[in-house]
């Protein structure tokens, strides 16, 4: 049985936009550009252009959905404006947030990664063991190997889930830490 060689018909940008929309829709996790390139068999620039157009289309027609880049991939999600309706349907309430201790620890890890427990202690001035455990349990941070220093302490960094839950495209989207230096009297 001679397998038909996929004679790639050049697709128009409009068709590509539609195909990409379908792929983003079915992907549970944000789908990466690399994956899109592989599946629709187009070069990076074309895929990027299609993504931009798709995202714009949603914005222009004031859709209840948004197409956006998050956690290193692309995702279709509801717009925050409609959270009350969506919650009413899903019968959910906003889930518990992290404690302030955990958030502070997460901030230190996000900005200083890879970072060890003693380094976190230095900045926070308190032991952070239970916060680290919480963050690991929630898969917001992951271990990044051991530091080649005395005692070979474990190093931590943020995970993809962290970017997704905090609405970040990638880590460079975090505001500069120096901008937080405002000591209000």
């Amino acid at each position: 049985m001679a397998k038909e060689k996929p004679q790639k018909q050049r697709r128009s940008l409009g068709e590509l936009v539609a195909a990409i929309e379908a792929l983003i829709f079915v992907s549970e996790e944000p789908i990466t550009v690399r994956m899109l390139i592989k599946i629709i068999n187009e070069d990076r620039d074309t895929v990027r252009a299609a993504l931009d157009q798709l995202s714009n289309e949603y914005d222009e027609r004031e859709s209840g959905l948004q197409v956006r880049e998050i956690g290193g991939g692309w995702q279709i999600s509801t717009r925050p404006e409609f959270h009350e309706d969506v919650r009413a349907f899903l019968k959910t309430r906003p889930s518990a947030k992290l404690s302030l201790a955990a958030l502070e620890t997460l901030a230190v890890i996000a900005y200083k990664q890879p970072v060890t427990v003693p380094e976190i202690l230095e900045i926070r001035g308190v032991q952070s063991a239970s916060s680290i455990k919480t963050l690991l349990d929630k898969r917001l941070i992951v271990s990044k190997g051991r530091k080649e220093t005395v005692g070979r302490p474990m190093q931590y960094g943020t995970s993809k889930d962290f970017m997704i839950q905090f609405g970040l495209k990638d880590l460079s989207e975090l505001p500069n830490i120096e901008d937080f230096e405002d000591f209000v009297q």
Binding site: L100, L103, E104, A107, A110, Y111, I123, R124, F180, E181
Partner: peptide, 8 residues
């Protein structure tokens, strides 16, 4: 420390 509190 304050910086990271703000970051949090």
């Amino acid at each position: 420390h304050q910086k990271f509190k703000n970051a949090a």
